[in-house]
Structures are given as C-alpha cells and as structure tokens.
Simulated scan of single mutants.
Amino acid sequence: MIIPAELTQCLKHSKRLAILTGAGISAESGVPTFRDAQTGLWAQYNPTELATPEAFQQNPKLVWEWYAWRQQLVAKAEPNAGHLALVELEHHQPSLTIVTQNIDGLHQRAGSNRVIELHGNINRFKCATENRILEQWEKQTAIPPHCPYCNGLIRPDVVWFGESLPVFALEQALQAIERSDVLLTIGTSALVQPAATLPLKALQQGATVIEINPETTPLTPCVHFSLRGKSGDILPKLLKSVWGDTQT
C-alpha cells in the first residue's frame, strides 16, 4: 500500500492527535464482535436480549454467566500489531488520546496510557444498586455475587442497551475529539451512536479525519483519507512512512 504524502505530512505535524477505535481492531486479536460471540451453548440467545438492565433484573445468573464466558474469550486474546503501533505512535505524539468503543482493555494491555472507554470494561465490576466500582469482594457461591457494601447484585461495568454512556467518559471523549487536529478512526462501523457522531464533530472543527477499515462505512465519503485494510497491516506501514523504522 502506498501512503499518500499529504497524509504522511499531516500526521507528522499533528499537535493534537485523537484515535477512535471500534470492534475491528479487537477482532484482529481474535475477540469476537458482539454478535459473532454467540456460539456453542449461547447460540440460542439474542445478545441484545442479554445485554440490558431488564435482562439482568429478570435473570441475573444467566447474564452474569454470559459475561463470564465472554471474559474468558477476552482473556485469551493478546494485543495485535495495530494496538502496538498505537503505543509506538504515542511515543511520537505524547498528546495522543485513544477513545475506544471496545470493552476488552487491549489498548491498556498493549501499553497505551491515555485511553477513554466509552462503553466500559468487561473486566471491571460495579454494584448494580449503587453504581459503585468494586475492586474486590469476598469469595461467594452466589451467582452473581453480592456487593460487600449494600448487598446489591454485582454486574460488569459495561454499558448495556438502554443505558447512557458514562458522563465523564463522554465529556472527555468530546473534548479530545473537538480539540484534535487529526483523527484516526480505526475498525469502527460508524453506525453505533453516539460514537458515530464523533468523527463528524472532528470534521466540523476542521480536523483531518483518516479512516482505517477493511470495509467502507457511512463515514467513508466524508473523510479526507480512507485506507482499506486491517489496522495491524496499515498502522505499522503508516508509522514507517512518517518516522521510518518503528518498534512494532
């Protein structure tokens, strides 16, 4: 792939770089997308019917066990070349901020420092009653376990259908996007709201928007540069075109 010279110069001279990542970059690590995860015993369930507050209220054990199974899938995954390239990119652009729709924590495991999680983290837990983040609790036989403070049920700290995004995370994401002069959108379908509006806000603010995705998306006609392919292939080449040999 030939990287356009204009793109190279744009990235090299960026002062406020922002990254928006979606399920595509995690899929390259073997993390199934939300709907692709429905295999084996879970194939009979519609994931949109499990990832709701109502489902947890009606059958908390079922929802907990489904997330426990998904946690096992995430635990087997390792950061890929795309994740590692973003870590390298941060070395060149210390102000870089990653806004991710993914809940697997692979960016942090790869070594990225400034990560805003719009949809939470599957490996973090909170009290369903008080919304308190819980680092640990005594071992219990109950499924789900109970909050050590109020005895409410413990749930994954992820955003379910019908729930709003965490206010602070959304505010941070908006600030990072609106202040950026270059935005890389990687592996996102540009369909899930409100994250899908973030690149449009960057465009409105005059930022250069670069899309990296194997497929075209609703965003493709709007961006300045559209690179077709996987992040693990394109990002290392992009970094090399700007700064020469990289560590990835």
Rank of each mutant, 00 (worst) to 15 (best):
T220H: 04
F125Q: 14
V242K: 11
D157S: 12
A27K: 07
C222D: 04
V159Q: 03
P156Y: 05
G232V: 01
K237Q: 15
W160G: 00
D104A: 11
T21M: 12
P47W: 10
C222A: 08
Q72G: 06
E6D: 15
H13Y: 15
P166R: 04
S180R: 04
A23P: 09
S14N: 12
H13S: 15
A75G: 01
W160Q: 01
S189P: 04
W137Q: 11
W69H: 04
I210P: 07
H91D: 11
R109H: 10
F161N: 00
H91W: 07
L41K: 15
G22N: 05
Q44I: 10
D157Q: 14
Q136S: 14
Y45M: 03
R228P: 00
H107T: 03
K237L: 13
G244T: 13
G40I: 09
T220Y: 10
Y45Q: 03
N121P: 03
C10D: 09
A196S: 07
K12I: 08
A190S: 13
C222R: 12
E178W: 02
L41G: 12
L20S: 08
A5F: 14
Q101K: 07
G152S: 06
I116C: 09
Q204R: 15
G30K: 14
Q101P: 07
T216D: 15
T188P: 01
S95I: 06
F125A: 07
H224I: 15
P32M: 03
N80I: 03
N121S: 11
L198G: 02
P94L: 08
Y67H: 06
R124D: 10
P148S: 08
W66D: 00
Q136V: 01
S164R: 00
C147H: 01
G187S: 09
A196C: 05
A128K: 03
T8D: 11
T129S: 13
A55I: 04
F225M: 12
N113S: 11
N213Y: 10
T188L: 02
E117Q: 14
Q93Y: 14
K201C: 03
A68T: 11
R35Y: 13
N59S: 13
E90F: 04
T217Y: 10
R124C: 10
G40E: 08
I143V: 14
F168D: 15
R114A: 08
K126M: 07
Q57W: 09
L73I: 02
V159Y: 13
A142R: 14
L50Y: 01
P60E: 02
K240A: 13
W42L: 13
I98Q: 12
E163A: 05
T39E: 10
I177Q: 04
P94K: 05
G105N: 02
A207C: 13
Q108E: 14
S180K: 05
F125K: 11
W42A: 09
G40W: 04
L200T: 05
P4C: 08
T52W: 02
E178V: 06
E54V: 09
K126Q: 09
A55G: 01
P53I: 02
T8W: 00
